[in-house]
């Protein structure tokens, strides 16, 4: 269900916790599964549940509680812009507007060509670098002026 490499990464996370608390690795395991599959299908969550010895519903609770899991298939790239107040004061809201216009989508929508899903984010702990955004959860882009936003969009194929 998941690749050997993903399982190896999950095992590394499991090893961080006492043996009887494998469940502790679920947040990392779901993130790893999402890295591989792009999103968390029911089968994937079911698999993670079995792998960690958890009830599937408990995995689902986690997957639906934390924002950065994709519970539906989305575009090839997910762009999450912080629009919280500190960022907004320094252009975060404008950056979001700009992206909406350039991509022709609103928040939680995917471009018709399946390239980008746009999301509104909450504080990323980087307000000093506003506007900030995350590409696919893991790559943070700082000080995103309009020019840099356009560059980024050109880069996301």
């Amino acid at each position: 269900m998941l690749s050997a490499e993903s399982l190896q990464r999950i095992d590394r996370e499991i090893a961080k916790f006492p043996a009887e608390h494998k469940q502790s690795a679920v947040i990392a395991a779901l993130a790893i599964a999402q890295d591989e599959k792009g999103w968390l299908a029911n089968e994937t969550m079911d698999f993670v549940a079995r792998y960690l010895g958890m009830p599937p519903i408990a995995v689902y609770e986690v997957a639906s509680f934390y924002n950065m899991y994709n519970l539906e298939p989305g575009g090839r790239h997910k762009v999450t812009v912080c629009t919280n107040l500190p960022c907004a004061l320094s252009g975060g809201a404008d950056a979001a507007e700009h992206l909406k216009q350039r991509l022709g989508v609103g928040f939680n929508e995917t471009t018709a060509d399946g390239r980008v899903t746009l999301k509104q984010g909450e504080c990323m702990g980087a307000c000093g670098d506003a506007p900030v955004l995350l590409v696919n959860n893991k790559r943070m882009c700082s000080n995103m002026s309009r020019e840099k936003l356009d560059q980024l969009l050109a880069e996301l194929k």
Binding site: N42, M45, D46, P55, P56, I57, Y60, E61, F65
Partner: peptide, 14 residues
Amino acid sequence: GMMGRGEHSEIVSF
């Protein structure tokens, strides 16, 4: 389980 968060949380089965 109770999935989701805040006002959007709902009791569901898997």
